[in-house]
Design a protein around this nucleic acid. Structure first.
Lengths: 135, 135
DNA sequence: CTACATACGTAATAACGTAACGCCGGGGCG
DNA sequence: CGCCCCGGCGTTACGTTATTACGTATGTAG
């Protein structure tokens, strides 16, 4: 449970993580950069470096199909390796969930193939309940 | 071959699909552009337009985590919606497979959430059997 | 002190993707 | 036939996303 399995965040990392947490949804690296200009950020690399670490610590996920980043929903994020995302193409809302059984099946496949799994990306695109027209 | 559930390819579409088939692996749009310069291609848009159609026809898949494209392994590609990919980070090889059960579980989740699924991305990163050090 | 590792700042550039415009050829249809 | 529409195409320009390269500062182990 380990609320703190990773080191203290540096100033830049804390700023980037704060932006993502406040946003409550995905942000691109350049959107984060714009948000943090007032805090002294001047170049993309400052954002990307912080994001790399935050992803490494499991506090932030990258959404490959969006080229964006989102703060992990779980406070201490224990389930870092097993997250999946449902992305609404109408409103942009992103739901994180943890499809344990599906992950297990995929791991079974990798084991049978001798493939050493390091990272799994599962992203579902579609329309969320709110945006699905009810009538 | 070619069950042909889709229209005849245009010249550009055929050239792009040919590049991807010949490559036998993923190519970025710009790599395709470079391959096709001798065939008269001059601008990215020519590639992207063809790729859009080929993806729509189910003949080509986009690898989100690579920003690249691959020809579908299945000749007529019937299983367009249910493909997953294992990507070796050492040699770059990409294996396409069809995790029917895992897909079903994910669909179960979407149904329970009222999420209308339109597209699923599953990409596994790791090391393939050949590249895994045996000793 | 030196050596090494980590974070940081900045500039420049590479890689990926799209908007906007106009042209052309083939159908449908009055 | 003349007209319109539409899909594909070519080109220019631009917008967005990500990285390379180089230099500085700080901390810690030997």
């Amino acid at each position: 449970m380990s609320v703190e399995t990773h080191p203290e965040l540096t100033k830049n990392q804390a700023l980037v993580f704060g932006s993502l947490s406040d946003a409550g949804g995905p942000l691109t690296a350049y959107a984060i950069l714009d948000l943090l200009r007032d805090s002294g950020f001047r170049a993309p690399l400052q954002v990307y470096r912080a994001l790399d670490k935050l992803v490494e610590y499991g506090m932030v996920h990258r959404l490959e199909s969006l080229n964006a980043f989102v703060a992990c929903s779980h406070k201490g994020c224990s389930s870092h390796g097993t997250a999946a995302f449902a992305i609404c193409e109408k409103c942009g809302e992103v739901s994180e969930f943890t499809p344990v059984k599906a992950m297990t099946l995929l791991q079974d496949w990798t084991r049978s193939e001798g493939f050493q799994l390091s990272r799994t990306t599962i992203e579902l695109r579609g329309t969320c309940r709110q945006c699905a027209v009810p009538n």
